[in-house]
Design a protein around this nucleic acid. Sequence first.
DNA 1: TATGAATGAGAATTCATTCAT
DNA 2: GATGAATGAATTCTCATTCAT
Lengths: 220, 220, 220, 220
Amino acid sequence: MTQKPNTRQAPISRDTDRSQAAILRAARDEFTEHGFAGGRVDRIAVRAGVNKRLIYYYFGNKDELFLSVLEHTYADIRQAEQSLHLDALEPVEALRTLVSFTWHYFLDHPEFLSLLASENLSRASHLKQSGKIREMHSPLVQLLDRLLERGQAQGLFRSGIDPVQLYISIASLGFFYLANNYTLSVIFGRDLRAADALEERLAHMTDLVVGYASSRPDTL
Amino acid sequence: MTQKPNTRQAPISRDTDRSQAAILRAARDEFTEHGFAGGRVDRIAVRAGVNKRLIYYYFGNKDELFLSVLEHTYADIRQAEQSLHLDALEPVEALRTLVSFTWHYFLDHPEFLSLLASENLSRASHLKQSGKIREMHSPLVQLLDRLLERGQAQGLFRSGIDPVQLYISIASLGFFYLANNYTLSVIFGRDLRAADALEERLAHMTDLVVGYASSRPDTL
Amino acid sequence: MTQKPNTRQAPISRDTDRSQAAILRAARDEFTEHGFAGGRVDRIAVRAGVNKRLIYYYFGNKDELFLSVLEHTYADIRQAEQSLHLDALEPVEALRTLVSFTWHYFLDHPEFLSLLASENLSRASHLKQSGKIREMHSPLVQLLDRLLERGQAQGLFRSGIDPVQLYISIASLGFFYLANNYTLSVIFGRDLRAADALEERLAHMTDLVVGYASSRPDTL
Amino acid sequence: MTQKPNTRQAPISRDTDRSQAAILRAARDEFTEHGFAGGRVDRIAVRAGVNKRLIYYYFGNKDELFLSVLEHTYADIRQAEQSLHLDALEPVEALRTLVSFTWHYFLDHPEFLSLLASENLSRASHLKQSGKIREMHSPLVQLLDRLLERGQAQGLFRSGIDPVQLYISIASLGFFYLANNYTLSVIFGRDLRAADALEERLAHMTDLVVGYASSRPDTL
DNA sequence: TATGAATGAGAATTCATTCAT
DNA sequence: GATGAATGAATTCTCATTCAT
């Protein structure tokens, strides 16, 4: 009883981890499909295959659960960005890679777009409660900072580019197109999800961003 | 939106118009603040100062009410765009004007951003039911088409620019920044609503768009 | 529509009053039997024969409903006290009448005892929210004040009796016996609700109170 | 309460005692603050610093736990009463002492008042299940009986006083004032817990009880 | 047109209790 | 003895919608 060998994985926490992970996954899907206000705790429980009570046991309430989902979602994209090793690439190539990565990440992770949109409808009320979200983002800013500096030093990029503004622009161009694709498709009567449309969009985005960074301000 | 001429006695129809307008205004505000799923019919009635039943009398149900709000919102921005008379401006100036207008319209009309985000969380389920939304947008595309053609003819703009892509990009750069300003402010720890930040953003956006349109593709 | 003759009872408010009264009665009974924490809104709805939603429509929530019940309950006993017209009685007789009335009121209105006990378990959290409860009690204090003064002027009562202390004592002697009758019956193994026990209790209480008021302090 | 001699190894039984005592203390506090219906088993576990399951292991369920708390509470006050050694005091002094003791016990032990009130809201449903509560109270009645007899024999007390009625009255006067102090303070707008108010109350109570016991019935 | 009253279906959350170890 | 995980049955409260006038 008392000499439980701690050299192997604690067996009890296995189920805990599995249950928590299942709840998080289910919550992510539910909130992605319906937003925070439209998401249902009941459906999350069914999706996760756990008792509804367990959600409250682990996550407190719907709001805290949503925040957990958000934090995991942000952690995922930030981690993926770090895996690009942009520092190892030549500046223009690094910028192209970042634009392309962001675009494809948004394409492959609709939950990111949806959760973000929902959280902004809530005026970031959940994110504001997070203790770890800020520190999660300084590496990204530093990464961009290094990239821009390298480019400027090599005479490839214009000077005075704000890394945060640039990142927001990169994200903007993909986000708006993909997150609002439903309404855009209706109002313009086009299928913005068609393969060639997507390809064209990435080219357009890259043109915009790289064109901007590489240009002489005075040429405008 | 509904300018059906009423030849019948005026007093009643005036009240009708007033009530309908009050409901629409109240609904717009409510949905802007809480999104579609989070918006409450009860609160709309209170905000409009009318009996809840009247909302159903005029608009059928919550979904149709939301659609009405959306249609009015789109009508407003499209009409404002036409009032710019871009055709009368020199191409580059016209493009700058459009970027600036779009930015300031988003700034002054947070309801547009919020309703758009909410409707996309619903996968455009309301807008799809609209009969008039499509035709509302062809003038915009035509406007952009003429502008780009003029610029290309004068050798000011690169060729092959898709007007829809360009419009989406212009909207993107402002939309993402403003609509997601809540989460962005948290994750980057900056006040993106500060006066100088807003000014800087518009300059950045204009640089991006005009720089792109004016550039030789091969220079990239 | 607009010329609704107001000379007869407003027909609309009939049902309103009936529903509200039914809810209040049902709530009073439910809270009497189970206390505030043990009372169930569902059961109140069933008891009142109304839709559960209507309770929230009229009373907001469980706490406000409980407060309403409390206020009505206090109003009832205070009104009944005023109906005794103690001012018209000779002082000693008036005091006996008040003791007897209080005792019989408690006997006939178990809800008063139970609601009071429950509210004190809640540390008067509901009553503290009441705007009208204070003013409801000043007439009682004034009544007692006049009674004691008359008795002292006639040399029938000792001087220096605090009306609030006296009223609390009168209420105490009946309240404890009746409200705690369940535990007292168990621990003393007696049926305190038997007719002769009740009679004896009233005699005992009257002896205590009248004996005290009539006595010379120094004779003790 | 449970003095079964444990001849087995001490260490385990000591932990047992400690856990049980911690649970009882925690339960007493929880039920005192929230009553039986409002008390939470979860909170008791946290307060006691033990696993929730342990509560069920030792006490079966919430009801039995509450009964245990009640029995201990009654045992405490009855034992304290016996420690007064009223038999050694002169009758009037003994009566004064009992009134004063009861008052101060209630003041120092709010749990007694609260648990009693809660149990009566439950119509003594727990106490009725107790096998030992009855026998716990006969010594008290005998004590009072002896006291009254001594006083009557010495011509100090009136005859025909029922010891149970007298004890109930003594308890009444303090209980109502202290247990219902929350509502009384609100309705009378006085701080009944102020030091001078408490002092005055004890004097008033003593006057009432001793005055009554010492008086000639016919003098009224 | 307009309204106060009313409702059924469901929403988040709670709670005492038990399972498996 | 002791514990973390898990649960079914409530419980309060909400919401879009309709009834009756």
